[in-house]
Write a protein that binds this DNA or RNA. Structure first.
Lengths: 126, 126
DNA sequence: CAGAATCCACATCGATACTG
DNA sequence: CAGTATCGATGTGGATTCTG
């Protein structure tokens, strides 16, 4: 069985939030990472993705389903249960996530330094 | 000397426009590609980037400058001349561009097929 | 030539309330 | 539980006009 997702999985203070690379829309990469170890239910995503609303989560998952990145399986039970799982195509995004992480590990600190220096110059009146 | 940029460098019909990966904002990746072979002037970007407005081009270049990706050199001449050039940090983005291209070459057709199939299912009334 | 200024259309994202 | 429906804030990108 797959373990529960860590609520602290995505630290809002993490500098990766300033990365210039983006996969899909705002929550896409995090959802893909959540699905790395196996299928997940709708409500499971709400735990690590603290501030996502059901509406936006649904939209993002639908887009992933539309593009063949995830499969959606609804079980006809009460209460309802729906599971999302990465397809091989969706799993290929994990390589990109890794590439972005690698780039960030190597270069993000330079970007942040450059940005700080830029504002120093600007704020101190040209 | 660097050769003039090809006006057809970025084909609007190119399927890469549906890629789920994005670097910076809309025109950033294309600008970085334009700078691959050496420094370029403001007006040079306007040739391959057919539909960019000066305002948006300026904003994008400023953001790249702010983040240490490009240097901006203004020559005090009349008429004015300004040159933009990739820094080593900006040049590191070329690796990501390549990673995105590689992903696209391998997987973009699957994405497009999945999307078409999805709309088939939806349009023909579920 | 290389932009700055202004206005505006659109899409994404979020807050809130409600439902099969 | 897993959404849907509605509304509104925000921000990006584009069109147009003007300038050192």
């Amino acid at each position: 069985m797959t373990k529960p997702l860590d609520p602290q999985m995505f630290d809002p203070a993490c500098p990766s939030s300033v990365t210039p690379i983006r996969i899909g829309d705002k929550w896409t990469a995090m959802i893909v990472i959540c699905l790395e170890d196996g299928p997940r239910r709708f409500s499971e995503f709400l735990v690590p993705l603290h501030h996502v609303t059901p509406k936006v989560l649904t939209e993002t998952l639908r887009a992933l389903e539309r593009d063949g990145m995830v499969t959606r399986t609804a079980y006809p039970e009460i209460p309802p249960r729906v599971e999302y799982e990465l397809t091989p195509l969706g799993r290929s995004l994990l390589d990109l996530v890794d590439a972005c992480r690698t780039w960030g590990d190597k270069h993000l600190s330079q970007l942040i330094e450059a940005r700080d220096a830029y504002w120093q110059r600007v704020d101190s009146g040209h």
